[in-house]
Computed example of a mutant assay.
Amino acid sequence: MHIHVIFNGHEAKYWLEPQVELAKNTGIPEHKLNEIKTIVEKYADRFKEQFRQHVGKRIDD
C-alpha cells in the first residue's frame, strides 16, 4: 500500500507497508521530503484504515 503526495507540482510516493519509506520523488526538495515523511508516519495507520474502508464500500456495492 502506498500514498502519493503532490507539492508545488512535484510528486513523491511513499510506501506505507511494511514501514513508511520513500519510493519515488520527482523534484520535491529534501527538506520538504523529511517534513512529509513525518506527517505520513504520523497518519499512516489512518490512511491505511480509510483505504480499507473505501475498498470495502466498493466491494459491497
Rank of each mutant, 00 (worst) to 15 (best):
Q19V: 15
R58L: 14
P18Q: 01
A23L: 10
K48P: 06
H10D: 11
E11M: 10
K37F: 00
R46M: 00
T38Q: 14
E49P: 05
D60E: 14
V40M: 02
G27F: 01
K48D: 05
T38R: 13
G27L: 06
Q50H: 06
I6V: 13
E35Y: 04
E49I: 11
A23K: 10
K32H: 04
I28P: 03
T38A: 14
G9R: 04
D61C: 10
K57M: 15
K24N: 01
D60C: 05
P18N: 01
F7V: 14
E49W: 03
F47C: 04
H10G: 02
M1C: 00
H10L: 02
D60I: 13
I36W: 00
A23I: 07
T38D: 13
E30T: 11
I28L: 02
N25Q: 07
E11D: 08
I39T: 14
V40S: 01
K42M: 07
H54Q: 12
G56W: 02
M1Q: 01
Y43G: 05
A23Y: 07
Q19P: 05
E41G: 03
K24A: 07
F51S: 03
A44C: 04
V20T: 12
N34Y: 03
I36N: 02
F51R: 08
N25I: 13
D60S: 14
E41L: 09
H10V: 06
E49G: 04
I39E: 12
I39D: 10
I59M: 06
G56K: 08
G56L: 06
K13E: 12
N34C: 06
M1P: 03
E35M: 07
L33C: 07
K57G: 14
K48E: 09
H2V: 03
Q53W: 01
H54E: 12
K42T: 12
H2L: 05
E41V: 13
V20F: 06
I39L: 14
E35S: 08
I36G: 04
H54S: 12
K48I: 15
I6G: 02
R52C: 05
Q53P: 00
R58E: 11
T26G: 01
G56D: 11
A12T: 09
H10Y: 05
W15L: 15
I59T: 07
G27P: 06
F7P: 04
E30D: 15
W15Y: 14
E30S: 13
E17Q: 15
A44G: 01
E30F: 11
W15R: 14
D61W: 08
K24M: 06
N25M: 09
E35P: 02
D60T: 13
